[in-house]
Each structure stands twice: as structure tokens, then as C-alpha cells.
Design a protein around this nucleic acid. Structure first.
Lengths: 143, 143
DNA sequence: GCAAGTACGCACCATCTGGTAAGTACCCGT
DNA sequence: ACGGGTACTTACCAGATGGTGCGTACTTGC
């Protein structure tokens, strides 16, 4: 990720949303602001260290806003910035495409797709629904 | 990239278009079929080994089709499959988003942006234009 | 002391991605 | 022989990403 110039816009975009955890974190934040511990539970399989790292990077990129309520115990809330929301909107078609084809993508990599399409995989769907299904998805996450 | 199940469609999509070279390769193939050597020259900075690797993976994912004309010297042509075209379409908004914000993305990473937005960076643009500008972009690629 | 809750930081390690430098095959021209 | 062209393969390495296991701070309850 040391590139300063990009051959195309896609490169630039993937600089801010690429990697293992950022897509999931972005998707979870799409449904509304989240506290650290809440995110930790929603993004199944992620360690605190990785979550902090991802949030910090996304914050540096202007995608995520961090609001510290200066309380004891500590209370911090993360949410998408306007910039992050615009990114989410630009990602919508790709989310839907991935949701429609994830079975094929998994199969093309010669992996047994034991966990069929989780309920929350349609990240372009209504967010009330996605929020509720998100918890179920997190439980079923096989990472 | 060993995941078989995905928390959201975005994860699945990024499995097939993530990494350093796939976005650029996909973008170059968007303008039409290309021979290996042609791609090599268009994707500035890529080694033959990396290009072959990326093409092979994209072929395995069903994004890219490889047509061997069985000639001497060898003549092989790569093009986007229908599946790849559908992916390209789903990526269009993200390409445009990245094109609009790439200056901000570069700045946010505290890098000197010596090479300002290359001409061909608007990957959502008319492809005749992008094709022509692609060569200029490739020459100016600073990777 | 231990546990739980809240949200982080640091040291070290494993794996993956990308890279270099060779090599393969065929052809033609000097 | 050398060079150029076409399109690949293999061995080995460097850096980036992700991970584990500790630690920090504050509170409360057992």
C-alpha cells in the first residue's frame, strides 16, 4: 500500500477498503455507529489488535469517525463519515454482485462451501434487516 | 484468501479483484481483448511472472478467458468473460469514486503526490478514450 | 487476589503476496 | 553465436499483512 499514484480509480478505492477485515468492518458500520466492543463481537474472529489497527487506518483515510465520550469505563463510538458513506454507496453494486455470485466464487476456488450463503450476505439490502441478520451471520462466520 | 464463506458480498468480490495487480489488469482488459505481451506493456511495472500469475488466477475465477491460437510464435489472447464483464459493471461506481477521490486518498496517506491524477484514471469513462489514455498512463506509471 | 466490563499498546512470529533471476520452447535476422 | 520476437515455468527471497500473547488504564463484584 505504498503507492502514491494510481493507474485507475479502482486501485485507489481498494487501497482504502482492501484487506481481510476492512470490508467486514465497513459493512458492520454501514448499519450505524458502533462501540468498540460491539464491533468486536459483530466482526467474528477478529482480535482486538486487528480491530484497532483497521479502525485506525480507516480513520486515517477519512472513512471512519471516532468519537470519544471521555467516560470511565472508556466509551468510544465509531461511525462512517460522509466520505465513508459515499464509499459505501459506491460499493453497493459490488456488494450485491458479490452476494449474488459468492457461491460461484467459493466453488471456483475448489473449496467445500459448507456454510451456504449466510443470511446477511446481501449487503445491499435493507439495513434494518441486515442489522438483525448480521448477528446471525457473525455467529456462523467460519473464519 | 482461504475463506470459503463470506460475511458479506463485498468480501467475496474482493477475493476476485483484490491485490496489487488485478485491478489494473481488469481495467486494461475492459477496453477489449489483449495479447500477453500487449498486456505486459500496458500494465507498466509488472513482471511477466506476476502477469501470468494474475491472469491464471483470474481465469480460474472465471473472470478472464484465455484463447490460444496455437501459432508459432505463440499467440494467446486474454479477454473478459461475461462474468468478468458483470464484475466490471459492478465495479464502475467504485472506479468513479476512486477516480474522484484518489487525490484525497493519496494525501491521507501522507505521501507526496508527485504524479497527479494520470489521464486514464477515470476508469468509468468512455473506453475509446481510456484505451488511448491508457498507454500514456502506463508510461507515467511510477510503481 | 480473581473475575467481569470498557478500550487500547507493544513485542514477536507465521503466512501470504509480490519480486528477482534464472530457465523453457519456438521462430527469424545479423 | 548473438540479438529480437512470442508466452510461459521454477527456485528462492523480501516485505506486508495478519496473528498470538502479553501488557496498560479505569471501574465493580466475589
Amino acid at each position: 500500500m505504498a503507492k502514491r499514484t494510481y493507474s485507475c480509480g479502482l486501485e485507489a478505492s481498494l487501497d482504502v477498503v482492501g484487506g481481510k477485515w476492512k470490508p467486514i468492518v465497513l459493512w458492520q458500520l454501514s448499519a450505524g455507529p458502533r462501540r468498540f466492543g460491539e464491533l468486536r463481537r459483530l466482526v467474528a474472529g477478529i482480535s482486538e489488535k486487528m480491530l484497532i489497527q483497521q479502525l485506525r487506518e480507516m480513520q486515517a483515510d477519512g472513512i471512519v469517525a471516532r468519537e470519544d465520550f471521555r467516560e470511565i469505563p472508556p466509551r468510544v463510538e465509531y461511525s462512517l463519515t460522509e466520505f465513508g458513506v459515499s464509499l459505501r454507496e459506491a460499493l453497493r453494486p459490488l456488494c450485491e454482485w458479490g452476494g449474488e455470485h459468492m457461491g460461484r466464487i467459493g466453488a471456483a476456488r475448489d473449496r467445500a462451501d459448507e456454510g451456504t450463503s449466510p443470511l446477511g450476505s446481501r449487503c445491499g439490502a435493507d439495513y434494518n434487516e441486515a442489522g438483525a441478520a448480521g448477528s446471525a451471520t457473525a455467529k456462523g462466520h467460519g473464519v
